Simulated scan of single mutants.
Amino acid sequence: MKVVVIGGTGLIGSKLVAKLGEHGHEAVPAAPNTGVNTLTGEGLAEVLEGAAVVVDVSNSPSFADDPVMEFFRTSTTNLLEYSAKAGVGHHVALSVVGTDRLQESGYFRAKAAQEQLIRESGRPYSIVHATQFFEFVKAIADFSTVDGKVRLPSALIQPMAADDVAAGLGRVTVGEPVNGIREIGGPEQFGLDELVRKGLAAKGDPREVVTDEQAPYSGVRLSERTLVPGPDAQLGEITFEKWLAQQ
Rank of each mutant, 00 (worst) to 15 (best):
V5M: 09
S14M: 09
K15R: 15
L16E: 03
V17D: 11
H25Q: 07
A27K: 05
V28M: 06
P29A: 07
A30L: 04
T34Q: 13
V36Q: 00
T38M: 02
L39S: 12
G41N: 07
G41M: 09
A45C: 08
L48K: 00
E49F: 02
G50I: 02
A51T: 02
A51H: 03
A51P: 03
A52C: 00
V53T: 15
N59R: 01
S62V: 11
D65W: 01
V68L: 06
M69K: 09
M69F: 03
E70H: 06
E70Y: 03
F71E: 04
R73T: 10
S75A: 08
S75E: 04
S75P: 08
T77F: 02
N78D: 13
N78L: 11
N78F: 01
N78C: 11
L80V: 12
E81R: 15
K85G: 14
A86S: 06
G89W: 12
G89E: 15
G89K: 10
H90G: 11
H91M: 15
H91S: 11
A93E: 06
V97F: 05
V97N: 07
T99W: 01
T99D: 00
D100G: 07
D100R: 05
L102W: 00
Q103M: 09
R109S: 14
K111L: 00
A112T: 06
A113P: 01
Q114K: 11
L117I: 13
I118Y: 02
R119F: 04
S126G: 09
I127L: 02
H129I: 09
T131D: 10
F136S: 10
F136Y: 14
K138T: 04
A139I: 07
A141W: 02
T145N: 13
T145F: 11
V150A: 14
V150P: 12
R151H: 15
P153T: 09
A155V: 11
A155H: 09
P159D: 08
T173K: 03
V174I: 15
V174K: 05
G175H: 10
G175M: 04
P177Q: 05
N179A: 14
G180P: 09
R182G: 01
I184R: 02
G186S: 06
P187T: 00
Q189S: 06
F190P: 06
E194H: 14
V196W: 06
V196K: 08
V196H: 13
R197T: 13
R197Y: 04
L200T: 08
A202Q: 12
G204Y: 12
P206L: 06
R207N: 02
V209G: 08
V209A: 12
E213Q: 15
A215W: 04
P216C: 14
E224D: 15
E224V: 13
R225E: 05
T226M: 01
L227I: 09
V228H: 00
G230H: 05
P231F: 13
P231Y: 12
D232H: 09
Q234Y: 05
L235V: 04
I238F: 13
F240R: 04
E241Q: 13
K242R: 15
K242M: 06
A245H: 07
Q246A: 15
Q246L: 11
